[in-house]
């Protein structure tokens, strides 16, 4: 039997990234390697530094030390022609960084209201990133809006409704549609199911899994919910007081945790 190809190209890398707001507050000397097509979960209690890490990785907070490297050639697939290989996120200009966030990356906020424009319709919300990329055909924007509403299980007939008239779970799905419409290579998700009713969470999780597979997304997912992490993440990093205490395959971390803190975290989960 032939040996399968187990290697995946590196898409995003953190090298010794540090940002401290106080002793043990923030992130300290974090190394990360996210591979193409991978969902990396960052778990930990609130205050562990996982949200700070997300912001550092997503280009929103400049680290005190260390580098965040985006391998844009990996993002382009095999050809990668005409693209710089490695982009040092905080060495490139702000213009390039923001363009990256707008075009090649996506960010899903915990609170959909932070990621949506509440004053304009669902269709305008979905179309915004396309318009930012230069789409200037109203009919096509609308078709894309309807298509994406269907994909995230929203009624396309409500394309002209304001997000305010949607439930929390629907708003979250709208935010996901708005983020994924430009087919980003890399998506950052901050507690994407955090504010939702349990009954709505499951459907959203399934939808996210399907989208990750269909679009070949690479995801960095921050969550305190180990059940969410188990269902969505391929790999986990456990954070505590600004440091990574353990990392590995998701079921390895959850079923055979090595570090004392991870064992405590895993054994503290309530299972019905």
């Amino acid at each position: 039997m032939r040996r399968p190809d187990l290697e995946r190209a590196t898409l995003l890398e953190a090298r010794g990234v540090t940002r401290l707001y106080g002793p043990g507050k923030g992130c300290e000397a974090i190394d990360i390697r996210l591979h193409r097509g991978e969902v990396l979960g960052i778990v930990g209690e609130s205050g562990s530094g996982k949200s700070t890490l997300l912001r550092l990785l997503a280009g929103m907070v400049r680290p005190d030390a260390g580098q965040v490297i985006y391998h844009s050639s990996a993002a382009q697939g095999c050809d990668g022609s005409g693209h710089e290989g490695e982009l040092d996120l905080y060495a490139i200009g702000e213009a390039r960084r923001r363009a990256l966030l707008r075009m090649e990356w996506g960010l899903v906020h915990q609170n959909p209201r932070d990621g949506l424009r509440l004053g304009v319709s669902a269709g305008a919300n979905i179309g915004e990133r396309l318009m930012a990329l230069g789409e200037r055909h109203y009919g096509q924007l609308r078709a894309a809006g309807q298509d994406w509403m269907g994909r995230v299980e929203l009624d396309p007939g409500r394309i002209d409704d304001a997000p305010r008239t949607f439930s929390g779970g629907m708003q979250q799905r709208l935010q996901i549609a708005r983020t994924l419409v430009t087919r980003p290579n890399l998506v950052f998700m901050d507690e994407p199911t955090g504010g939702l009713d349990v009954s709505v969470q499951a459907r959203l999780l399934d939808m996210l899994r399907t989208l990750v597979r269909e679009l070949g997304l690479s995801v960095i997912l921050v969550t305190h919910d180990l059940a969410v992490a188990r269902l969505l993440a391929h790999r986990l990093m456990v954070m505590r007081r600004g440091q990574v205490v353990e990392a590995g395959l998701t079921d390895q971390i959850l079923d055979d945790p090595q570090h004392a803190y991870t064992q405590l975290l895993v054994s503290s989960v309530l299972t019905p």
Binding site: R2, R3, P4, L6, R8, G37, H234, A247, L249, Q252
Partner: peptide, 24 residues
């Protein structure tokens, strides 16, 4: 044991398990 040689599972990096589980 593959035609091209052996694969040690105990030292396999976490990311390599995705494809191994998918295909093998």
């Amino acid at each position: 044991h593959f035609e091209e040689g052996d694969l040690s599972l105990e030292t396999l990096p976490a990311h390599a398990w995705h494809n191994l589980r998918r295909d093998v």
